[in-house]
Amino acid sequence: MTDEPRDTDCMEVLDRLYEYIDGELTPERAAEVRRHLDACAPCFRLAGFESAYVRFLEARTRGQHAPAALRKKILEQLLLEGSSSESP
């Protein structure tokens, strides 16, 4: 945070930026952040960069699926459990 001296508003917005991007702020707080971003070009550009980064992470990490063989093994396991747990 040494790059550019920023005022308190900027620091507060930076602190809440991920919460803002993640939709974790109350509507009132989110509106405050949005107002600041609309008025402050450096924060606006940073917010754009960080949003792109978070979207990138999501896009690149959700492609894996449980292998079919594993799913099959689990289903077989459940069948075995079912019959063995009939009598408590």
């Binding site: 945070m1 040494t2 550009r45 960069f49 960080e50 792109a52 980064y53 992470l57 990490t61």
Partner: peptide, 26 residues
Amino acid sequence: SYTVFHDVQETDPEGAFFDTIVDDEV
């Protein structure tokens, strides 16, 4: 340091370089 944005804001402000990185590396 907070955010690589400060390193790339002049050359790649929108973070296009992220797209060059393959899933496995992520």
